[in-house]
Design a protein around this nucleic acid. Structure first.
Ligand code: ZN
Ligand code: ZN
Ligand code: ZN
Ligand code: ZN
Lengths: 138, 138
DNA sequence: CGTGGGTTTGACAATGGTTCTCAACATCGC
DNA sequence: GCGATGTTGAGAACCATTGTCAAACCCACG
């Protein structure tokens, strides 16, 4: 529902640097597993800042859209978030402690494209996550 | 959290064939894309049967546990369900009309296992779905 | 056929994650 | 500072999903 700008006008400057957004960024920098918005909200509180839960959701969503964080869903369907590298990758996640490893698989990427092409599907995207129990949790 | 049965006792006969379960099965047989519990509930009503929504959820869950239907989550996190073949496979789903193709990729299975082993993860599972626009929808 | 005990159901409440609302507030360019 | 516009937060609203529990149902078994 973004309104079309009048011709010539500059794209208004989104993403102002606010205290709240800095707090979310700081929280994201403080862990490397996937966490729910609630957990991130709690972490922010524990770090002394105070940010509304709605704002945490808004910030995480826009960061995800910008590709700066990855969002995926745990088995209960809850959204969980993590600051990730900006190249295309997937995840190996411990379902006990959440420890996460970023993984890449060029062959898999090629395979998904081939399969989709074979069936005439275009405009592709895919999800691929591996869950297991990490060495520490065994 | 399943209680361990007393030794010798017979595993009680689960899964009685009730009118409601037959209705859910019939509904599942009537489409081959992924649908939400609500949609399946509506379909059952439209087919003349009457089954409580909670029962639809219960039946779908147990069918999923039994491996007779696949459940995955759409981008909004809602659970969607589909009657599938009983061998391990993944899905190529049209994000416009929902048309679904079951796909298999032994190489991908091998790759996920190798990656997980390499990092010492055990007790593995994985999700892999491909989304795109099918030939008809283009 | 009855009957009894475990299973299943369904209307409804409760849960809980996520989004919406909108007035108060911060930021920016000037 | 000022006005315009983006941002926030408390709480309500949403809504998919699950829990509750008494009534209905299946299924041996006699
Ligand atoms: Zn990532
Ligand atoms: Zn990929
Ligand atoms: Zn399937
Ligand atoms: Zn697989």
């Amino acid at each position: 529902m973004t309104s079309t700008d009048a011709p010539g006008t500059t794209q208004t400057q989104q993403r102002r640097p606010t205290r709240q957004r800095r707090a979310v960024a700081a929280a994201l920098a403080g862990f490397d597993d996937f966490r729910s918005a609630q957990e991130i909200h709690d972490l922010i509180s524990r770090q002394g800042d105070s940010v509304g839960l709605a704002t945490v959701y808004r910030t995480l969503s826009s960061l995800a859209e910008a590709g700066e964080v990855d969002m995926l869903r745990n088995e209960d369907g809850e959204a969980i978030w993590r600051s990730c590298s900006d190249t295309h990758h997937h995840h190996l996640v411990c379902r006990t402690c959440g420890a996460t490893v970023e993984v890449e698989g060029p062959a898999v990427e090629r395979w998904t494209n081939a399969i989709a092409a074979e069936h005439g599907y275009a405009d592709l995207s895919h999800t691929l996550e591996i869950f297991g129990t990490c060495p520490t949790c065994r």
